[in-house]
Simulated scan of single mutants.
Amino acid sequence: MKNIFATLLLAQACVTMATPACAAEVHVAVASNFSAPMKEIAAAFEKKSGHKTILAFGATGKFYAQVRNGAPYGLLVSADAATPARLVSEGLAVPGTAFTYATGRLVLWSAQSSFVDGQGAVLRNGAFAHLAIANPRTAPYGAAAVGALEKLRLLGGLKNKLVQGENIAQTYQFVKTGNAALGFVAMSDVYRGGKFVGGSAWVVPADLHAPIRQDAVVLARGASNPAARELAAYLQSDEVRQIIRFYGYER
């Protein structure tokens, strides 16, 4: 009887407050473009919930392959909407748990001030040796970059200047370090609280590429993990909405 009573008290405590006995741990696969806001979100979530998050950052396409091969992720924070939907259809994610947490913006950026103009005309004058993009086969921001170049009818002329990053984070590093004079990066890499932080930038008009709708989903391995489900709910909160807007995302 005492054991039953103790269990009931613990269950009630888990509902009303975070305690060590209630804490769980969740491995989270996070699209590299969302690295900075996710670190902030995870820290706030851990403090609020008592759960522990273990974050891995990379290209969404690679995470898809890892999940198919049994990686222990409980939640996928994707750079697109197609991958979560595909995982649900393949029985590798929990039906009904996918949701859009943000819409990303693509930016043409250079670490050099005044190098990129406000209309992106620098792409036409060709006064650069390398243009960095993320791998369009595995990174949605890379696919968006290719789509924008195609609509601008510039892809053919610039193909020999393209250098590909494995993901959008590596692409940003190419440009930040000067290995590429400019590149298509995620706005979240170069924008904070209403302004760009260093360099020069052109925000690519949204009608030049497919929307970068970013969805998250609870994976099959996280189906019974309270930390996975609570983090998914937290990602949809007003508190998180303010964080992601600070980094230049729309929602």
Rank of each mutant, 00 (worst) to 15 (best):
A139Y: 15
A220C: 01
L123K: 15
V217Y: 06
A71M: 08
N167E: 02
I4T: 15
Y172E: 10
A227W: 12
R213W: 04
V30N: 00
V146P: 00
H209S: 04
L131M: 15
A81M: 15
K159C: 12
A169N: 12
A206G: 00
S200A: 10
V28F: 15
T83H: 11
G183F: 14
A145L: 03
F34V: 14
S110R: 06
K62C: 07
A65H: 11
R137K: 13
G61K: 08
R241G: 02
T16M: 13
A134P: 00
A181N: 03
A42L: 08
G199A: 14
A220D: 00
I212N: 00
Y64V: 08
F57R: 11
K2W: 12
R213D: 03
A186H: 09
G193D: 03
F57L: 13
G165H: 10
K62T: 07
V94A: 02
E250R: 12
A93N: 10
T19Y: 13
F196N: 06
L108Q: 08
S237V: 13
W109D: 14
G199M: 08
V190K: 04
G50K: 09
V15G: 01
Q66K: 14
N225M: 02
S188E: 03
K48L: 04
V28M: 14
E230L: 15
A121E: 02
G157V: 12
F45K: 15
A232T: 09
L208A: 08
S78H: 03
I4L: 07
A56M: 14
L10Q: 01
G61H: 10
N33Y: 11
S110Q: 15
F174I: 13
S49N: 06
G120H: 15
I41Q: 05
F128W: 10
V197N: 04
